[in-house]
Write a protein that binds this DNA or RNA. Sequence first.
DNA 1: CCGCCTTAGTCGCATTGTTGAGTAGGTGCG
DNA 2: CGCACCTACTCAACAATGCGACTAAGGCGG
Lengths: 187, 187
Amino acid sequence: MSLKYAVLAALLEGEASGYELSKVFDVSLANFWASTPQQLYRELERLAQDGLIEARVVRQERRPDKRMFTLTEAGRRDLDAFAATPPRRPTAIRDELLIKIQAMDGVDPDATRALVEERGAWSRGKLARYRRVRERLLAGRTEAEYLRETDRVGPYLTLMGGIGFEEENLRWCERVLTVLRQRAPLG
Amino acid sequence: MSLKYAVLAALLEGEASGYELSKVFDVSLANFWASTPQQLYRELERLAQDGLIEARVVRQERRPDKRMFTLTEAGRRDLDAFAATPPRRPTAIRDELLIKIQAMDGVDPDATRALVEERGAWSRGKLARYRRVRERLLAGRTEAEYLRETDRVGPYLTLMGGIGFEEENLRWCERVLTVLRQRAPLG
DNA sequence: CCGCCTTAGTCGCATTGTTGAGTAGGTGCG
DNA sequence: CGCACCTACTCAACAATGCGACTAAGGCGG
């Protein structure tokens, strides 16, 4: 149900093809609503049928044709209504690693250490990408200047959410690694 | 697929009924793997059929009978194997509020403010419960003492993950509220 | 010039997850 | 003494998600 609105929100940035959206979902939206390309294409189909987005086929010479999608007025109204009402359900996190940590005490500490280090590396990567996006948005301005001058603060605030989340992740990884080191000192 | 291991991990704490597990999932496991009672009962059924857990019917006089579940040796081995291998997919967050924030710029700021305040209140509640659980675990000891004396650090580390996550949530809420105040000053 | 990568998707089934209701006795509250 | 809530589940139906492969063309490196 919410994938629908995630897609509509992504189209606030302007016209995009399904393929482009699947890239956007990978890097920025994936932060708070992950999905596979297949899900996206399906959702776009539905949204177009419901008149919330409009499709326009772009013929290409040396590439497969693509369909570019834009928000319709109806879509924008639907999205605005969604954005103004309280979430039906709280945040859901699905984190396999945490299950593995919960059950770590029956397992070789070195194996666990490897998992946590992998997660840490991944978080550092995400963080670096988020920060580059932030630099691009700020374009040399301070945050205060940016916030005064831009007309859309939403994407900036969700980006900062992603940055905070990954920073917290890294702190947690460090903590876990410290505990692991104390448990099995100087393996 | 992972709900299975979340359940097995929960049973590391000892024998439990489906009903008890559904409570546990509400308060502690919900932190990183949410599920409804219905899902749990289905999963327990499957796990019992696969021989990973064992059921024992407890007749009760003034209550409906209940089935208590324990991990079998096979279940423990399966869980240990799971816990030692890298997660197939990265963390997935599903947060409707962030979609609403992403799309907030078409919406009355007071409506958005209300959503964020609600989230903040909810996070504070979760945090309070997490901290009570932590106090109970520590039982007056310092963290270092606790970690030296306990045989299972996994549950403590996931708990600290939950605490860090909610703290980060609160910081983010504050940040969003500050921006909202600056945008619509002294409404 | 062979094989792999990228663009731009599509198909279909299998697994998961969600919704809503039903059962059935016991407990506590005013 | 009536009503709501708690324990302890079960069932059916449906919606959402995931998995894996498939098409089809051009580009690029060795």
